[in-house]
């Protein structure tokens, strides 16, 4: 087990080795802008091609259960109440009460102040991420760092993270400072992610997992998405996540594909597996299956586990459950047979 300080040091050393210097604006800029650009037309054509696969019968059945087990069931509204979080948790524990073999979702994702409510509601179903049990139980993920805009001072962001972690969050979804990124202050973005990662440390030694939200809808180009992905991974993010869900366009297949390519390249370079989480805008099981195909074809099927791939979604689960009911009963189901969220 490494202490937070030494982990941070290791991250910085790795960056220094890769960049050939400290993680300054100039060095990061040289490195990130040295990454080959993206052929946008080719990327979109590739994503569209992956979306045409026909997944039927037993494969579809497998895909549907896999999708459920990869969902971060999310509620991120200003109007969230304790009751709403509790009902979200009960849905996470048994997504389809009429079907006991329905898998549980990977995690529930809430605002920081709702973490303690979610932890309490999960009870025995909640299994904190410890080194011994990396994948048991439902996790609690919290958005932090002045989500969704990220417009707050670093001190406030770190306090936000520490608060969620101490309340029992197993995963932290942070947003990067898109303003700083777009104006070329890469060093600031890097330092922030490193600092947030350090704040994810828990007393018991098991860090909260850090998901870095790039908010690709505000990054404008695929090249920027690729650079932001590299930057987030360099700075020690465990997951890279497309969007907050508050900005349109949210997750799209080409954007996710480009992020998966970065993850693939990073795995080849270092042997480390980074997770990817498309979030926002994925509402149908048909869409979700396209993402499964893209993951399997880009980084490999071993990424289709909750440790390495997640869907950030709220309404997706209902559509997947309707599909599942259709496959179980043989007739079409309807919205009366799933929850109203």
């Amino acid at each position: 087990m490494t202490s937070p300080a030494s982990a941070e040091l290791a991250t910085r050393e790795r960056t220094t080795t890769l960049l050939g210097g400290e993680a300054t604006d100039a060095n990061l800029r040289r490195y990130l802008h040295g990454i080959p650009g993206i052929d946008a037309v080719g990327l979109e054509a590739r994503a569209a091609g992956l979306g045409t696969r026909s997944i039927k019968t037993s494969s579809k059945r497998w895909a549907i259960d896999t999708i459920i087990s990869l969902i971060d069931l999310t509620t991120l509204e200003g109007a969230d109440t304790h009751g709403k979080v509790r009902s979200l948790v009960s849905k996470a524990v048994s997504p389809d009460p009429s079907s006991p073999d329905c898998p549980r979702v990977a995690a529930v994702c809430v605002y920081g102040d709702m973490v303690s409510v979610a932890v309490e509601a999960l009870g025995a179903a909640h299994s904190a991420r410890t080194p011994e049990t990396p994948d048991a139980g439902i996790r609690v993920a919290a958005v932090a760092t002045a989500f969704p805009s990220g417009r707050a001072s670093l001190a406030v962001k770190l306090a936000d993270v520490a608060d969620a972690v101490s309340a029992g969050a197993d995963e932290i979804d942070m947003v990067i400072d898109r303003g700083a990124f777009l104006s070329g202050r890469y060093g600031q973005v890097y330092d922030e992610i490193v600092a947030v990662k350090a704040a994810c440390a828990r007393a018991d030694g098991a860090d909260a997992h850090l998901k870095v939200i790039l908010e690709t809808g505000e990054l404008n180009t695929y090249d920027n998405v690729r650079r932001a992905s590299w930057l987030a991974i360099l700075a020690g993010g465990d997951f890279i996540k497309t969007s907050t869900g508050k900005v349109a366009p949210a997750a799209t297949l080409p954007v996710t594909l480009s992020m998966l390519e970065v993850v693939r390249d990073w795995h080849r370079l270092t042997g480390v597996k980074i997770g990817v989480k498309p979030a926002g805008g994925i509402r149908t099981s048909k869409d979700a299956i396209k993402y499964l195909v893209t993951v399997a074809e880009t980084v490999g099927e071993e990424w289709l586990t909750p440790q390495l791939f997640r869907f950030g979604a709220s309404s997706l689960l209902n559509d997947v459950l309707l599909q599942r009911q259709k496959m179980t009963t043989g007739h079409y189901s309807g919205p009366d047979y799933v929850t109203i969220d």
Binding site: G330, H331, Y332, S333, G334
Partner: peptide, 9 residues
């Protein structure tokens, strides 16, 4: 038959 068994009809 699909409409007859459809849960949303």
């Amino acid at each position: 038959p699909w409409l007859a068994s459809h849960a949303d009809v």
